[in-house]
Design a protein around this nucleic acid. Sequence first.
DNA 1: GCTAGGAACTCACGCCGCGTCAGGTTCAGG
DNA 2: CCTGAACCTGACGCGGCGTGAGTTCCTAGC
Lengths: 249, 249
Amino acid sequence: MRDHAQLWKVGELADTTGLTVRTLHYWGELGLVVPSSRTTSGHRLYGVADVERVYQVVALRELGLSLDAIGRVLDEGGPGLAGVLEAHVTQVRAQLDALRTLEATLSVLVTRVRRTGSPAPSDLLGLIDEVSKMNEKFNEYFTDEQLATLSRRREQLGEDRIAEAESEWPILIAKVQAEKDAGTDPGEPRVQALAARWMELLAEFDGGDPAIREANGRMLTENQSEVGGGSHIVELIDYINSSNQARQN
Amino acid sequence: MRDHAQLWKVGELADTTGLTVRTLHYWGELGLVVPSSRTTSGHRLYGVADVERVYQVVALRELGLSLDAIGRVLDEGGPGLAGVLEAHVTQVRAQLDALRTLEATLSVLVTRVRRTGSPAPSDLLGLIDEVSKMNEKFNEYFTDEQLATLSRRREQLGEDRIAEAESEWPILIAKVQAEKDAGTDPGEPRVQALAARWMELLAEFDGGDPAIREANGRMLTENQSEVGGGSHIVELIDYINSSNQARQN
DNA sequence: GCTAGGAACTCACGCCGCGTCAGGTTCAGG
DNA sequence: CCTGAACCTGACGCGGCGTGAGTTCCTAGC
């Protein structure tokens, strides 16, 4: 009656678990899942308990734990689990933060490279530096929540629209600069049209969120040369603002 | 006049760049940054162009590119850059998605393990499966944006408060179940107090967002046994709803 | 009983981006 | 000239296996 316990050979176990034979061999080498018996010729035989342990390792591995950590968790039984998981989740969160800022940097870089064409390696360096520094400023002036909102807005807009907007800004700025240099009254319809377009583009960026707009304004005024692309940008903003007020009166 | 070009030895370059000597050696082996000259005795001498190239590699490495990819980008000059960056950013985004769901799973697991104590390895398997499946359901029923909102709400609440809430739910459910089993009228003040608490806990989860509450309701009704922790949960919700309506009339 | 071919076995190297000895040579200051 | 710091090359190690290579074992058909 006894002894009809099920036994699997490596290949069979590999097929049913979706793992490879090599993986099971390796886990055996590490002492993570050692087949509880072997044939006289040396072929591995996995029992029910072994199979269960394999599934446990699979589950923990999917959580991103190292095989080393898995071994300790499974052998110590339980007390270590809570600590291991907590340490792991903090590390995952750190990695998430890093990846998020990396993604932000890369997104900007990709659209910028696509718009202006591939830069020469020498320009590349400056470009990356510029974008990275801009991102640092963003992290400094916006809360995590606002950054998330901005990121999702960018996704919704789509890269093409962003590229368009990014290429429209300098043109618009140049036009406004020209009017201001010419001494045109901010109340002029021509200037008001420019101001309206300015606010539209701005709204496309910040979604009309006043907190984001305010943070953006602070960032610009406090870092005119690095971020705004020129120290006169603030004066242009004043000019636009007075134009807007003229329209509303 | 010529020939006063600056030259650096590895140690000096390592100091100024913050890299290690070994790293510069390695980059040389790969042909990534080969010092343009050497002393007669074989000591590496890096010229200005070499140093610039080092900084380019550093910049690209910070973007997460492999040294192999960096080499191709820098040697091909430009055309590959756009493509490489695009491919890389898509891969980063995929990794981000994976990490986000992993973080969600781990968060739930950690609070649950802390609350119930470390489970035996055999229970562990079921626990992980359960949480993973719950997370899949979440991904199925909530949009990315809603998931992000939920994640940030959890962060704001703090793990302790979540643990409290998670331990309060079963108690509350049991109480409501008892009243319902006893046939208590939903309009009774006692039941209304329970219903009020129910809505409070719910609001703590969904932040009062109606779309999230609706998605949550659908998830519960459509997956009673797997997620809700019992098939009678829907009837309890009906009971709570009628109690709420009784209060508002 | 014999044979074929599939499955199992045990080394052992390769990947990526270096860290880290080990053992020998060269440089720079006193 | 001597000494200690800096440099050189070569080699192994990490993690989690993939991918051979060369050998032995199991099983089914004849």
